[in-house]
Design a binder for these strands. Sequence first.
DNA 1: CCTTGACCTTCCAGTCACTGGAAGCCTTAT
DNA 2: ATAAGGCTTCCAGTGACTGGAAGGTCAAGG
Lengths: 130, 130
Amino acid sequence: MNISDVAKRAGMPPKTIRYYEEIGLISPPRDTNGYRVFRDSDMHKLAFLGRARALGFTIENCRTLLALWEDQDRASADVRTLAHAHLRNIEAKIADLEEMRDTLARLVTACAGDERPDCPILKSLGDATV
Amino acid sequence: MNISDVAKRAGMPPKTIRYYEEIGLISPPRDTNGYRVFRDSDMHKLAFLGRARALGFTIENCRTLLALWEDQDRASADVRTLAHAHLRNIEAKIADLEEMRDTLARLVTACAGDERPDCPILKSLGDATV
DNA sequence: CCTTGACCTTCCAGTCACTGGAAGCCTTAT
DNA sequence: ATAAGGCTTCCAGTGACTGGAAGGTCAAGG
């Protein structure tokens, strides 16, 4: 299976797979023609990475998670700590975005959105007292 | 007022102000010593930019918003359209993050987080069938 | 056997919105 | 006169890819 088939299965572009190799997340051997040979372990790692990235873990966290995954003797506490910290990050981001959303929604509602120049959105951005 | 005082007032680092000049959002003239001279209009633009960025608008959107702000004849519809599209973006991001949060929260709850290696988080990341 | 087209490879550059740091000039206080 | 601190420019790096160029490889059709 060549890289584009692997990419389809893993649900990520070939470029991403090459990138993951470049940064040492996977190390597929090469065929005589120079093509990457993906073993089962590489495919599993890519699937793992795809899921971890979909949960928003950074690449560095993914690297750590992969190492923990490979380590049969890990303590689940280590994984949980990482995931919990990440969860908090996500919650903080959501809170930030919700604040933006609420302010924006208020402004969009207040704006007539017609051909006239009067606009509460610009007024609010231009003037602290709104 | 030199750049670091302006930065304090605008609530952003001096580096950001220099960057905003570099990309043409502001164009403060220079004193004989080469220092930037910030006029009222520059300060207002920086305040505007700070608020627009806090609402999550991209720099390019900020550029457009600034132009609309300066244009006394703009139609408020143009502003509203931009803000509305941005609002939708934010809502989509929130939805994505909420999905991550829910999955993660479920996994974190399911994980004992002790010294044992058994871990539902890694199990879920490593195996599609969870 | 040759060509065509679709793969594969590497390498370099660009994205976004800054941020860090070095090197050197300017100002203010001692 | 000097020392500290602020100003200037310029270059490089961030995260996680993504686009594109240049060139090697492979399978199918004529």
